[in-house]
């Protein structure tokens, strides 16, 4: 099936694939060929792409939208998307630590800030776990 991951920074992935596992707000969803049309909201997490030759590619996404159109093509509109080999684990860990410190330091921060920091922690966690998986291979 046709599969595209697009972000405002450009196209991260564009290929014909076998199946893909996508983190949505309702939990992880594995999409096979000929899936019914659906529009779903993505959560921050790992997306696992199974290529036609059986190998897999891990991509960290930080939220966005997935759309499957009637032809079965899958479009992911992600805010950010990074392939495992592009992730710098030490930087991701530093970013997560910074976010956690922010949370503990400011006890009386506004809800908006809290939600934002929470979201950035989730995003960094997804990046770290994908980055680690890739390094072990």
């Amino acid at each position: 099936m046709e599969f595209k991951v697009v972000t405002p920074h450009g196209v991260t992935y564009n290929d014909t694939i076998e199946k893909v596992t996508v983190p949505t707000l309702a939990g992880a969803l594995t999409i096979l060929d000929q899936h019914a049309p659906i529009v779903s909201v993505l959560a921050a997490g790992e997306m696992v792409i199974h290529r036609m030759d059986g190998s897999t590619v891990d991509v960290a996404v930080s939220g966005g939208i997935m759309e499957i159109v009637s032809s079965g093509a899958v479009y992911i509109m992600a805010d950010t998307a990074e392939r495992a080999e592009e992730i710098d684990i030490s930087r991701a860990e530093a970013a997560k630590k910074r976010a956690e410190e922010l949370l503990t330091q400011q006890k009386n921060i506004a809800d908006v800030d809290f939600a934002r920091i929470q979201a950035s922690i989730e995003k960094e966690l997804a990046r770290i776990s994908i980055g680690k998986k890739y390094r072990k291979l």
Binding site: E2, L25, P37, V39, S40, V41, A73
Partner: peptide
């Protein structure tokens, strides 16, 4: 881009249309 002529009513919308609008 793949053309899409299927009516939107037949789409699954998760969790809801408004949530998708929000994004």
């Amino acid at each position: 881009l793949a053309p899409d002529n299927r009516p939107i009513e037949t789409y699954f919308l998760e969790p809801s249309r408004d949530a998708i609008f929000d994004i």
